[in-house]
């Protein structure tokens, strides 16, 4: 089982690396965007492990993206500094927000996270002199190990950065799933009270999940910022967070691969639906979503997973 999955992962990374080479450049850009989003979707899935649904991941997504923007304004251009710095800011925001929201469950958790992300949205719009308001901040092309790439090279750097980050995020997620904290989180989802009665530190488990989630969302945010080259308050708007939840369910929350596959499929559908049916693309997304929830409850990835399992057992 383990070797097969390892083989699968190696194959996937190989495909992604080759894709950067072979695919047309606009598709590479789209793929990088999808991977960044996929990482952020993983942050939703982490919380879902504990039975929590956040409608405010935009908070960390935007916090990290703006952190990168500000660092660039202060003259830091190095990718290897920007990424940890931005993720760090997101985790810090998560550590503070977590104190507030980790006590809440269900719809209250969802609404409170939503409220926090909308407060950030409001601040970003209001603090016009600092944040550029709704116009946002430009993100110039970063350097890698001090080397300034431009044009196509810069695109590829960002793409491979996204691939690497995806691998790191997926690995972290896999480790978390098989760690005591991960198992406890799932137990909390199934029956929080029973876990508490067993003497497990429920608040600490939820808080830890929240931190991990904010870091992953932040990673997705900084990748998006570097890829797009521009950040605006829309990253913190509730529809951005809603989209992440949407993709999580689209891809399936049971595995690590599901959300990533969901993000890629989502970006592709959106791109083509946009081109051919500007007035009906939301409808198509909605209908696809309904069909998946009603007929494929485990998400798009679940049949693949089932097939995989049948072959390995």
């Amino acid at each position: 089982m383990k070797s097969v999955s390892r083989l699968g992962w190696a194959g996937l990374v190989g495909v992604l690396v080759l894709a950067g080479w072979l695919l047309p450049r606009w598709l590479v850009f789209l793929l990088a965007l999808a991977l960044a989003k996929g990482v952020a979707v993983l942050s939703v899935v982490v919380l879902m492990r504990a039975g929590l649904v956040s409608f405010g991941q935009g908070l960390f997504f935007a916090a990290a993206a703006y952190a990168a923007g500000f660092a660039m304004r202060w003259g830091v251009r190095e990718t290897l500094l920007l990424v940890p710095w931005s993720v760090g800011v997101a985790v810090l925001v998560g550590a503070l927000a977590g104190l507030l929201v980790a006590r809440y469950r269900d719809i209250f958790f969802a609404m409170l996270t939503l409220a926090l992300s909308m407060v950030l949205y409001g601040i970003l719009i209001k603090a016009y002199g600092v944040t550029g308001g709704s116009d946002g901040i430009r993100i110039p092309t970063p350097t890698l190990l001090g080397v300034q790439f431009s044009g196509e090279g810069a695109r590829l750097v960002v793409y491979y950065l996204a691939v690497a980050a995806t691998v790191v995020a997926a690995w972290t997620m896999g480790r978390y799933d098989r760690s005591p904290a991960g198992y406890l989180a799932q137990a909390v989802r199934d029956n929080e009270l029973r876990v508490a009665y067993l003497g497990a530190p429920v608040p600490r488990v939820v808080y830890l999940g929240f931190l991990l989630s904010s870091g992953l969302a932040g990673l997705g945010g900084v990748l998006t910022a570097l890829n797009v080259g521009h950040v605006d308050p829309g990253l913190s708007y509730w529809t951005t967070s809603g989209e992440l939840v949407f993709i999580a369910v689209l891809g399936g929350t049971g595995s690590v691969m599901g959300p990533l596959a969901g993000a890629v499929v989502y970006e592709l559908i959106r791109s083509y639906a946009f081109k051919y049916a500007p007035y009906a693309w939301q409808m198509m997304l909605g209908a696809a979503m309904l069909l998946i929830i009603l007929f494929l409850p485990g998400g798009l990835w679940s049949p693949v997973e089932r097939l995989w399992r049948r072959q390995t057992t």
Partner: peptide, 30 residues
């Protein structure tokens, strides 16, 4: 529609995939 992120992707597609000679556009300042 779709925000700046979407428009950057669409612009790349127009230039690189559709191979337009130029683009005239954009109402939103962002």
């Amino acid at each position: 529609a779709g925000g700046a992120e979407k428009q950057v992707a669409e612009f790349r597609r127009l230039v690189l995939d559709e191979r337009v000679d130029l683009v005239i556009g954009y109402i939103s300042s962002a």
